[in-house]
Design a protein around this nucleic acid. Structure first.
Lengths: 204, 204
DNA sequence: TGACACGGTGCACGCCTGTGCAGTAGGGTC
DNA sequence: GACCCTACTGCACAGGCGTGCACCGTGTCA
Protein backbone atom coordinates (compact mmCIF):
# COMPACT_ATOMS: atom_id res chain seq x y z
CA UNK A 1 0.00 0.00 0.00
CA UNK A 2 1.07 3.57 -0.53
CA UNK A 3 2.14 5.80 2.27
CA UNK A 4 0.79 9.28 2.81
CA UNK A 5 3.60 11.13 1.10
CA UNK A 6 3.23 9.01 -2.01
CA UNK A 7 -0.49 9.76 -2.14
CA UNK A 8 0.20 13.48 -1.69
CA UNK A 9 2.61 13.36 -4.58
CA UNK A 10 0.06 11.51 -6.65
CA UNK A 11 -2.64 14.08 -6.05
CA UNK A 12 -0.14 16.85 -6.74
CA UNK A 13 0.56 15.27 -10.11
CA UNK A 14 -3.14 15.11 -10.86
CA UNK A 15 -3.76 18.68 -9.77
CA UNK A 16 -0.77 19.91 -11.76
CA UNK A 17 -2.04 18.17 -14.83
CA UNK A 18 -5.49 19.69 -14.45
CA UNK A 19 -4.06 23.16 -14.06
CA UNK A 20 -1.28 23.05 -16.63
CA UNK A 21 -2.37 20.46 -19.10
CA UNK A 22 0.81 18.45 -18.70
CA UNK A 23 2.39 16.38 -15.99
CA UNK A 24 5.03 17.98 -13.77
CA UNK A 25 8.71 17.22 -14.16
CA UNK A 26 10.69 15.37 -11.53
CA UNK A 27 12.31 18.60 -10.44
CA UNK A 28 8.97 20.39 -10.16
CA UNK A 29 7.66 17.68 -7.87
CA UNK A 30 10.86 17.87 -5.88
CA UNK A 31 10.52 21.62 -5.44
CA UNK A 32 6.93 21.25 -4.22
CA UNK A 33 7.80 18.62 -1.62
CA UNK A 34 11.23 19.98 -0.75
CA UNK A 35 13.04 16.97 -2.09
CA UNK A 36 16.26 18.41 -3.41
CA UNK A 37 17.41 15.37 -5.34
CA UNK A 38 15.71 14.16 -8.48
CA UNK A 39 16.26 10.63 -7.30
CA UNK A 40 14.28 11.26 -4.17
CA UNK A 41 11.31 11.96 -6.39
CA UNK A 42 12.10 9.05 -8.66
CA UNK A 43 11.85 6.80 -5.68
CA UNK A 44 8.19 7.80 -5.22
CA UNK A 45 7.42 7.71 -8.90
CA UNK A 46 8.63 4.13 -8.97
CA UNK A 47 6.33 3.34 -6.06
CA UNK A 48 3.36 4.93 -7.81
CA UNK A 49 4.15 3.14 -11.02
CA UNK A 50 4.46 -0.22 -9.30
CA UNK A 51 1.16 0.41 -7.53
CA UNK A 52 -0.42 1.06 -10.91
CA UNK A 53 -1.39 4.67 -10.25
CA UNK A 54 0.69 6.15 -13.00
CA UNK A 55 2.47 4.98 -16.11
CA UNK A 56 5.80 6.39 -17.14
CA UNK A 57 7.29 6.84 -20.56
CA UNK A 58 11.02 6.57 -20.20
CA UNK A 59 13.43 9.16 -21.50
CA UNK A 60 10.74 11.68 -22.25
CA UNK A 61 10.10 14.93 -20.46
CA UNK A 62 6.96 15.02 -18.37
CA UNK A 63 6.53 11.36 -19.15
CA UNK A 64 4.16 10.72 -16.27
CA UNK A 65 0.84 9.45 -17.53
CA UNK A 66 -2.34 8.37 -15.83
CA UNK A 67 -2.65 4.65 -15.26
CA UNK A 68 -3.81 2.93 -18.38
CA UNK A 69 -7.24 1.94 -17.12
CA UNK A 70 -8.17 5.55 -16.40
CA UNK A 71 -6.45 6.91 -19.47
CA UNK A 72 -9.62 8.22 -21.03
CA UNK A 73 -11.21 9.28 -17.76
CA UNK A 74 -11.10 13.04 -17.99
CA UNK A 75 -11.63 13.24 -21.69
CA UNK A 76 -13.75 15.76 -23.43
CA UNK A 77 -16.32 14.74 -25.96
CA UNK A 78 -16.45 16.49 -29.33
CA UNK A 79 -19.55 18.58 -29.76
CA UNK A 80 -20.89 18.37 -33.26
CA UNK A 81 -24.03 20.41 -33.62
CA UNK A 82 -27.72 20.19 -33.01
CA UNK A 83 -29.71 17.05 -33.56
CA UNK A 84 -32.38 18.72 -35.61
CA UNK A 85 -29.81 20.05 -38.05
CA UNK A 86 -30.55 18.67 -41.44
CA UNK A 87 -27.06 18.34 -42.80
CA UNK A 88 -25.26 15.02 -42.51
CA UNK A 89 -23.03 14.86 -39.49
CA UNK A 90 -19.34 14.69 -40.12
CA UNK A 91 -16.69 14.97 -37.49
CA UNK A 92 -14.48 17.17 -39.60
CA UNK A 93 -17.05 19.52 -41.03
CA UNK A 94 -19.33 20.25 -38.11
CA UNK A 95 -16.73 20.74 -35.48
CA UNK A 96 -18.26 22.91 -32.85
CA UNK A 97 -16.01 22.72 -29.84
CA UNK A 98 -15.71 20.25 -27.06
CA UNK A 99 -18.16 19.33 -24.39
CA UNK A 100 -16.52 19.40 -21.00
CA UNK A 101 -18.10 19.07 -17.61
CA UNK A 102 -16.09 21.87 -16.11
CA UNK A 103 -16.81 24.01 -19.14
CA UNK A 104 -20.52 23.65 -18.65
CA UNK A 105 -20.74 24.20 -14.94
CA UNK A 106 -17.97 26.70 -14.39
CA UNK A 107 -15.70 26.13 -11.44
CA UNK A 108 -16.06 22.69 -9.96
CA UNK A 109 -14.96 23.91 -6.54
CA UNK A 110 -18.36 23.90 -4.90
CA UNK A 111 -19.98 21.31 -7.08
CA UNK A 112 -20.89 17.81 -6.22
CA UNK A 113 -22.98 15.11 -7.81
CA UNK A 114 -25.79 13.07 -6.38
CA UNK A 115 -27.53 10.02 -7.72
CA UNK A 116 -31.28 10.50 -7.95
CA UNK A 117 -33.72 8.01 -6.50
CA UNK A 118 -37.44 8.18 -7.20
CA UNK A 119 -39.56 9.77 -9.87
CA UNK A 120 -40.66 13.01 -8.23
CA UNK A 121 -38.86 15.25 -10.74
CA UNK A 122 -39.76 13.30 -13.83
CA UNK A 123 -41.45 16.21 -15.58
CA UNK A 124 -38.28 18.26 -15.17
CA UNK A 125 -36.41 15.56 -17.07
CA UNK A 126 -34.71 14.21 -13.96
CA UNK A 127 -35.15 10.46 -13.85
CA UNK A 128 -34.29 7.69 -11.46
CA UNK A 129 -30.58 6.91 -11.71
CA UNK A 130 -29.60 10.30 -13.09
CA UNK A 131 -26.87 12.30 -11.45
CA UNK A 132 -27.70 15.85 -10.51
CA UNK A 133 -24.84 18.34 -10.41
CA UNK A 134 -25.35 20.45 -7.33
CA UNK A 135 -23.80 23.77 -6.43
CA UNK A 136 -23.25 23.85 -2.70
CA UNK A 137 -25.04 26.84 -1.17
CA UNK A 138 -27.56 27.43 1.58
CA UNK A 139 -29.90 29.80 -0.23
CA UNK A 140 -31.90 29.57 -3.43
CA UNK A 141 -34.15 31.74 -5.56
CA UNK A 142 -37.76 31.08 -6.36
CA UNK A 143 -38.21 28.54 -9.13
CA UNK A 144 -34.79 26.99 -8.83
CA UNK A 145 -34.42 23.28 -8.38
CA UNK A 146 -32.84 22.66 -5.01
CA UNK A 147 -31.45 19.76 -3.08
CA UNK A 148 -32.75 20.22 0.43
CA UNK A 149 -32.67 18.38 3.69
CA UNK A 150 -36.07 18.19 5.40
CA UNK A 151 -36.37 16.30 8.68
CA UNK A 152 -32.99 14.75 7.86
CA UNK A 153 -34.29 13.45 4.56
CA UNK A 154 -32.72 14.80 1.37
CA UNK A 155 -34.87 15.51 -1.68
CA UNK A 156 -34.78 17.31 -5.00
CA UNK A 157 -37.63 19.74 -5.60
CA UNK A 158 -38.56 23.09 -7.04
CA UNK A 159 -38.06 25.83 -4.47
CA UNK A 160 -40.88 28.34 -3.96
CA UNK A 161 -40.85 30.56 -0.89
CA UNK A 162 -44.13 32.16 0.27
CA UNK A 163 -43.52 34.63 3.04
CA UNK A 164 -42.15 32.65 5.95
CA UNK A 165 -43.25 29.31 4.52
CA UNK A 166 -41.51 27.44 1.76
CA UNK A 167 -43.15 25.20 -0.81
CA UNK A 168 -41.21 22.29 -2.24
CA UNK A 169 -42.91 21.36 -5.47
CA UNK A 170 -42.35 18.07 -7.25
CA UNK A 171 -42.31 17.86 -11.03
CA UNK A 172 -44.75 14.98 -11.02
CA UNK A 173 -48.48 15.38 -10.60
CA UNK A 174 -48.57 12.26 -8.45
CA UNK A 175 -46.95 14.21 -5.63
CA UNK A 176 -48.44 17.17 -3.79
CA UNK A 177 -46.31 20.17 -2.85
CA UNK A 178 -44.65 19.98 0.54
CA UNK A 179 -45.13 23.05 2.71
CA UNK A 180 -42.26 23.80 5.04
CA UNK A 181 -43.07 25.88 8.10
CA UNK A 182 -40.45 28.09 9.79
CA UNK A 183 -40.09 25.72 12.73
CA UNK A 184 -39.36 22.67 10.58
CA UNK A 185 -35.93 21.11 10.39
CA UNK A 186 -35.11 22.39 6.94
CA UNK A 187 -31.85 23.17 5.20
CA UNK A 188 -30.94 23.88 1.60
CA UNK A 189 -27.93 21.85 0.54
CA UNK A 190 -27.52 23.38 -2.89
CA UNK A 191 -29.09 24.25 -6.20
CA UNK A 192 -29.18 21.92 -9.17
CA UNK A 193 -26.91 23.15 -11.93
CA UNK A 194 -27.05 20.19 -14.24
CA UNK A 195 -28.10 16.66 -14.91
CA UNK A 196 -26.03 13.79 -16.24
CA UNK A 197 -27.48 10.51 -17.32
CA UNK A 198 -25.80 7.40 -18.57
CA UNK A 199 -28.07 5.41 -20.85
CA UNK A 200 -27.15 1.78 -20.78
CA UNK A 201 -28.15 0.23 -24.06
CA UNK A 202 -31.28 -1.73 -23.23
CA UNK A 203 -30.90 -3.86 -26.31
CA UNK A 204 -27.33 -4.68 -25.49
CA UNK B 1 -11.45 32.04 -37.43
CA UNK B 2 -9.28 28.97 -37.47
CA UNK B 3 -8.63 26.98 -40.59
CA UNK B 4 -9.03 23.26 -40.81
CA UNK B 5 -5.41 22.36 -40.23
CA UNK B 6 -5.27 24.44 -37.07
CA UNK B 7 -8.37 22.68 -35.75
CA UNK B 8 -6.84 19.30 -36.59
CA UNK B 9 -3.74 20.23 -34.67
CA UNK B 10 -5.85 21.41 -31.76
CA UNK B 11 -7.77 18.18 -31.56
CA UNK B 12 -4.52 16.23 -31.90
CA UNK B 13 -3.19 18.08 -28.86
CA UNK B 14 -6.32 17.26 -26.92
CA UNK B 15 -6.24 13.63 -27.93
CA UNK B 16 -2.55 13.37 -27.12
CA UNK B 17 -3.15 14.84 -23.71
CA UNK B 18 -5.97 12.40 -23.06
CA UNK B 19 -3.83 9.45 -24.03
CA UNK B 20 -0.51 10.45 -22.51
CA UNK B 21 -1.41 12.76 -19.70
CA UNK B 22 0.80 15.52 -21.04
CA UNK B 23 0.73 17.82 -24.01
CA UNK B 24 2.80 16.89 -27.06
CA UNK B 25 6.05 18.65 -27.88
CA UNK B 26 6.42 20.84 -30.93
CA UNK B 27 8.40 18.12 -32.68
CA UNK B 28 5.80 15.48 -31.89
CA UNK B 29 3.10 17.61 -33.47
CA UNK B 30 5.35 18.21 -36.43
CA UNK B 31 5.94 14.50 -36.90
CA UNK B 32 2.21 13.83 -36.83
CA UNK B 33 1.36 16.45 -39.45
CA UNK B 34 4.53 16.06 -41.47
CA UNK B 35 5.77 19.52 -40.68
CA UNK B 36 9.52 19.11 -40.61
CA UNK B 37 10.35 22.43 -39.04
CA UNK B 38 9.54 23.26 -35.46
CA UNK B 39 8.65 26.74 -36.59
CA UNK B 40 5.97 25.41 -38.87
CA UNK B 41 4.27 24.04 -35.80
CA UNK B 42 4.95 27.16 -33.81
CA UNK B 43 3.11 29.11 -36.44
CA UNK B 44 -0.05 27.13 -35.67
CA UNK B 45 0.45 27.19 -31.94
CA UNK B 46 0.59 30.95 -32.12
CA UNK B 47 -2.67 30.94 -34.06
CA UNK B 48 -4.33 28.69 -31.48
CA UNK B 49 -3.02 30.79 -28.64
CA UNK B 50 -4.26 34.02 -30.21
CA UNK B 51 -7.64 32.40 -30.78
CA UNK B 52 -7.73 31.53 -27.09
CA UNK B 53 -7.83 27.77 -27.54
CA UNK B 54 -4.61 27.06 -25.73
CA UNK B 55 -2.25 28.82 -23.38
CA UNK B 56 1.48 28.38 -23.56
CA UNK B 57 4.08 28.51 -20.87
CA UNK B 58 7.26 29.81 -22.44
CA UNK B 59 10.56 28.02 -22.20
CA UNK B 60 9.09 24.91 -20.70
CA UNK B 61 8.80 21.53 -22.34
CA UNK B 62 5.28 20.48 -23.24
CA UNK B 63 4.15 23.92 -22.17
CA UNK B 64 0.86 23.75 -24.05
CA UNK B 65 -2.04 24.13 -21.69
CA UNK B 66 -5.78 24.35 -22.10
CA UNK B 67 -7.13 27.88 -22.38
CA UNK B 68 -7.42 29.51 -18.99
CA UNK B 69 -11.20 29.69 -18.96
CA UNK B 70 -11.38 25.93 -19.37
CA UNK B 71 -8.54 25.27 -16.96
CA UNK B 72 -10.81 23.33 -14.67
CA UNK B 73 -12.57 21.76 -17.60
CA UNK B 74 -11.63 18.16 -17.18
CA UNK B 75 -11.92 18.17 -13.43
CA UNK B 76 -13.98 15.50 -11.83
CA UNK B 77 -16.92 16.33 -9.67
CA UNK B 78 -17.10 14.56 -6.33
CA UNK B 79 -19.91 12.10 -6.14
CA UNK B 80 -21.52 12.13 -2.75
CA UNK B 81 -24.36 9.65 -2.60
CA UNK B 82 -27.99 9.37 -3.48
CA UNK B 83 -30.43 12.20 -3.06
CA UNK B 84 -32.95 10.18 -1.16
CA UNK B 85 -30.35 9.23 1.39
CA UNK B 86 -31.50 10.47 4.75
CA UNK B 87 -28.20 11.29 6.36
CA UNK B 88 -26.85 14.84 6.16
CA UNK B 89 -24.49 15.32 3.29
CA UNK B 90 -20.91 16.04 4.11
CA UNK B 91 -18.14 16.23 1.58
CA UNK B 92 -15.65 14.37 3.72
CA UNK B 93 -17.83 11.64 5.13
CA UNK B 94 -19.92 10.58 2.19
CA UNK B 95 -17.28 10.57 -0.46
CA UNK B 96 -18.33 8.06 -3.00
CA UNK B 97 -15.94 8.46 -5.88
CA UNK B 98 -15.67 10.98 -8.64
CA UNK B 99 -18.00 11.62 -11.50
CA UNK B 100 -16.11 11.77 -14.76
CA UNK B 101 -17.53 11.91 -18.23
CA UNK B 102 -15.02 9.48 -19.62
CA UNK B 103 -15.54 7.20 -16.67
CA UNK B 104 -19.25 7.04 -17.31
CA UNK B 105 -19.22 6.47 -21.01
CA UNK B 106 -16.08 4.40 -21.41
CA UNK B 107 -13.75 5.26 -24.21
CA UNK B 108 -14.52 8.60 -25.80
CA UNK B 109 -13.07 7.58 -29.14
CA UNK B 110 -16.33 7.15 -30.94
CA UNK B 111 -18.42 9.46 -28.85
CA UNK B 112 -19.75 12.82 -29.77
CA UNK B 113 -22.28 15.20 -28.31
CA UNK B 114 -25.25 16.83 -29.95
CA UNK B 115 -27.48 19.61 -28.72
CA UNK B 116 -31.14 18.61 -28.75
CA UNK B 117 -33.81 20.74 -30.37
CA UNK B 118 -37.49 20.03 -29.92
CA UNK B 119 -39.53 18.15 -27.38
CA UNK B 120 -40.07 14.80 -29.07
CA UNK B 121 -38.13 12.83 -26.43
CA UNK B 122 -39.50 14.65 -23.42
CA UNK B 123 -40.89 11.52 -21.76
CA UNK B 124 -37.44 9.93 -21.95
CA UNK B 125 -36.11 12.85 -19.96
CA UNK B 126 -34.42 14.44 -22.96
CA UNK B 127 -35.37 18.08 -23.11
CA UNK B 128 -34.73 20.96 -25.47
CA UNK B 129 -31.20 22.25 -24.97
CA UNK B 130 -29.87 19.03 -23.51
CA UNK B 131 -26.78 17.42 -24.96
CA UNK B 132 -27.03 13.79 -25.92
CA UNK B 133 -23.86 11.73 -25.83
CA UNK B 134 -23.86 9.58 -28.92
CA UNK B 135 -21.79 6.52 -29.71
CA UNK B 136 -21.00 6.53 -33.40
CA UNK B 137 -22.24 3.29 -35.00
CA UNK B 138 -24.48 2.36 -37.89
CA UNK B 139 -26.56 -0.33 -36.23
CA UNK B 140 -28.78 -0.40 -33.17
CA UNK B 141 -30.83 -2.85 -31.18
CA UNK B 142 -34.55 -2.71 -30.61
CA UNK B 143 -35.54 -0.26 -27.89
CA UNK B 144 -32.35 1.77 -27.99
CA UNK B 145 -32.49 5.51 -28.44
CA UNK B 146 -30.79 6.33 -31.71
CA UNK B 147 -29.70 9.43 -33.57
CA UNK B 148 -30.68 8.78 -37.17
CA UNK B 149 -30.63 10.61 -40.42
CA UNK B 150 -33.91 10.33 -42.34
CA UNK B 151 -34.24 12.15 -45.66
CA UNK B 152 -31.17 14.16 -44.63
CA UNK B 153 -32.86 15.28 -41.42
CA UNK B 154 -31.32 14.16 -38.12
CA UNK B 155 -33.57 13.14 -35.23
CA UNK B 156 -33.46 11.37 -31.88
CA UNK B 157 -35.96 8.56 -31.46
CA UNK B 158 -36.50 5.11 -30.05
CA UNK B 159 -35.45 2.46 -32.56
CA UNK B 160 -37.86 -0.44 -33.22
CA UNK B 161 -37.30 -2.64 -36.26
CA UNK B 162 -40.21 -4.69 -37.61
CA UNK B 163 -39.05 -7.06 -40.32
CA UNK B 164 -37.83 -4.88 -43.14
CA UNK B 165 -39.49 -1.76 -41.82
CA UNK B 166 -38.23 0.37 -38.97
CA UNK B 167 -40.32 2.33 -36.55
CA UNK B 168 -38.93 5.50 -35.03
CA UNK B 169 -40.92 6.19 -31.90
CA UNK B 170 -40.99 9.54 -30.12
CA UNK B 171 -41.21 9.76 -26.36
CA UNK B 172 -44.03 12.26 -26.54
CA UNK B 173 -47.63 11.33 -27.21
CA UNK B 174 -48.01 14.41 -29.39
CA UNK B 175 -45.95 12.69 -32.09
CA UNK B 176 -46.88 9.54 -33.98
CA UNK B 177 -44.29 6.86 -34.76
CA UNK B 178 -42.46 7.29 -38.04
CA UNK B 179 -42.35 4.17 -40.21
CA UNK B 180 -39.25 3.84 -42.34
CA UNK B 181 -39.56 1.66 -45.42
CA UNK B 182 -36.51 -0.14 -46.89
CA UNK B 183 -36.29 2.26 -49.85
CA UNK B 184 -36.18 5.37 -47.69
CA UNK B 185 -33.04 7.44 -47.29
CA UNK B 186 -32.28 6.27 -43.78
CA UNK B 187 -29.08 5.96 -41.82
CA UNK B 188 -28.28 5.41 -38.16
CA UNK B 189 -25.68 7.84 -36.93
CA UNK B 190 -25.29 6.38 -33.49
CA UNK B 191 -26.95 5.30 -30.27
CA UNK B 192 -27.57 7.57 -27.34
CA UNK B 193 -25.33 6.68 -24.43
CA UNK B 194 -26.04 9.58 -22.14
CA UNK B 195 -27.63 12.94 -21.56
CA UNK B 196 -26.07 16.04 -20.11
CA UNK B 197 -28.04 19.10 -19.14
CA UNK B 198 -26.90 22.41 -17.80
CA UNK B 199 -29.58 24.05 -15.69
CA UNK B 200 -29.21 27.77 -15.71
CA UNK B 201 -30.62 29.15 -12.49
CA UNK B 202 -33.92 30.68 -13.50
CA UNK B 203 -34.02 32.81 -10.38
CA UNK B 204 -30.54 34.15 -11.05
C1' DT C 1 26.24 -5.83 15.83
C1' DG C 2 25.53 -6.76 11.21
C1' DA C 3 22.49 -6.72 7.34
C1' DC C 4 19.07 -4.66 4.88
C1' DA C 5 15.19 -1.67 3.52
C1' DC C 6 13.63 3.14 3.52
C1' DG C 7 14.12 7.72 2.09
C1' DG C 8 16.79 10.31 0.59
C1' DT C 9 21.59 13.76 -1.35
C1' DG C 10 24.75 15.16 -5.09
C1' DC C 11 26.54 15.27 -9.54
C1' DA C 12 27.73 14.48 -14.32
C1' DC C 13 25.99 13.19 -18.79
C1' DG C 14 23.39 13.60 -22.85
C1' DC C 15 19.25 13.72 -25.18
C1' DC C 16 14.83 16.56 -25.29
C1' DT C 17 12.71 20.73 -26.30
C1' DG C 18 11.47 25.62 -27.01
C1' DT C 19 13.40 29.80 -29.18
C1' DG C 20 15.53 33.07 -32.41
C1' DC C 21 16.96 34.23 -36.78
C1' DA C 22 17.23 33.76 -41.71
C1' DG C 23 15.22 32.30 -45.79
C1' DT C 24 11.57 30.71 -49.30
C1' DA C 25 7.74 29.18 -52.37
C1' DG C 26 3.10 30.06 -53.69
C1' DG C 27 -0.97 32.97 -54.01
C1' DG C 28 -3.50 37.27 -54.02
C1' DT C 29 -3.91 42.19 -55.08
C1' DC C 30 -3.15 46.73 -56.43
C1' DG D 1 6.18 44.06 -61.15
C1' DA D 2 6.37 45.14 -56.25
C1' DC D 3 4.48 43.96 -52.00
C1' DC D 4 2.30 41.46 -48.52
C1' DC D 5 0.32 37.32 -46.37
C1' DT D 6 0.34 32.37 -45.54
C1' DA D 7 2.64 28.40 -44.50
C1' DC D 8 6.20 26.70 -44.06
C1' DT D 9 12.07 24.91 -44.16
C1' DG D 10 16.63 24.78 -41.90
C1' DC D 11 19.85 25.49 -38.40
C1' DA D 12 22.20 26.85 -34.20
C1' DC D 13 21.79 27.46 -29.32
C1' DA D 14 20.76 27.31 -24.46
C1' DG D 15 18.41 25.58 -20.96
C1' DG D 16 15.07 21.74 -19.42
C1' DC D 17 14.87 17.23 -18.02
C1' DG D 18 15.36 12.08 -17.24
C1' DT D 19 18.99 8.75 -16.12
C1' DG D 20 22.86 6.38 -13.97
C1' DC D 21 26.07 5.97 -10.44
C1' DA D 22 27.94 6.68 -5.90
C1' DC D 23 26.96 7.54 -1.28
C1' DC D 24 24.57 8.39 3.43
C1' DG D 25 21.75 8.56 7.82
C1' DT D 26 18.05 6.19 10.27
C1' DG D 27 15.30 2.54 11.79
C1' DT D 28 14.44 -2.31 12.58
C1' DC D 29 14.82 -7.03 12.72
C1' DA D 30 17.52 -11.10 13.78
Amino acid sequence: MLNERAREIYSFIQRYRRENGSAPTIREIGRQFEISSTNGVRYYLNLLEKAGHITRTGGISRGIGPSTDTATATAGIPLLGTVAAGSPINAEENWNGTLDIGDMFGQTENLFALAVRGDSMIDAGILQGDYVIVQKQDTARAGEIVVACLESEATVKYYQPHGDRIELIAANEKYDPIVVTPDADFRILGTVRGVIRSVIGRGK
